Simulated assay, not measured.
Amino acid sequence: MADYYNVGKITSAHGIKGEVKVYPLTNEPERFYDLEYVWIFDDQQKMNKYYIEYVKITSKGVCVKLKGIDTRNDAERLKGAFLKVDAQNALKLEEDEYFIKDLIGMRVYTEEDEYLGKLVEVFQTGANDVYVIKDEKNEILIPAIKDVVKKVDVENKVMVVHLLEGL
């Protein structure tokens, strides 16, 4: 199966013409203007391709009109669904940037090769992301900053960190 990346989550219907309100899960909400289509899983976990008719970005988020979703009832059925893009439409990452889906499940070690646990969640706080690392007994929160995260090996699913005083 191809890689898919979440770019937004439908929070509600908007108006009576089938528009949906989308909470953007991207650092660049303007990217919705450049998307021709998105993918959405249906109830049977089958991917459905929806072409985008138009996009409006407001102070409260993104409003999207999907082709074939023409009534408020159609739009309400999509509430909670994730809008996804395939790998060819994913944003190109800068150096030291990673997709959250590629980080989840990484084994995390200190620079001294002490196993801390697996990265299980990423909180996006605005200032910097925070990684949640869990093992059988403990949970550690690590800021995703260069002083802490020393190496990320996506291919081997390994991260090396330097624990600052107090972590």
Rank of each mutant, 00 (worst) to 15 (best):
A75K: 00
Q124G: 08
T125D: 09
L66V: 05
K46T: 12
M47H: 13
I10R: 00
Y54C: 03
V149Q: 07
E53I: 01
N6V: 13
E136V: 02
K79C: 12
Y131V: 02
L119F: 11
V64C: 08
Y4R: 10
E30C: 11
V64Y: 12
I133Q: 00
H162V: 06
F82H: 04
V22P: 06
K157S: 14
G80C: 01
A144K: 02
H162W: 07
Y131G: 03
V161P: 09
A81S: 14
N6D: 06
E165S: 12
V122M: 03
I52V: 12
Q44L: 11
G105N: 13
I69F: 01
L116Y: 02
P29F: 09
L35N: 11
S12E: 03
K9I: 14
K101T: 15
V152K: 04
L103M: 11
K137Q: 12
D3H: 14
Y23K: 09
E28W: 10
I16M: 14
E53L: 02
D153Y: 04
Y37N: 05
V130A: 00
P29D: 09
V20I: 11
V7E: 04
I69K: 02
V149W: 04
I142H: 09
V152H: 08
L66Y: 05
H162T: 08
V20D: 03
D135T: 00
Q124V: 08
G166T: 10
E136L: 01
V7H: 06
D42M: 05
E76G: 02
I69R: 00
D129V: 09
K101F: 07
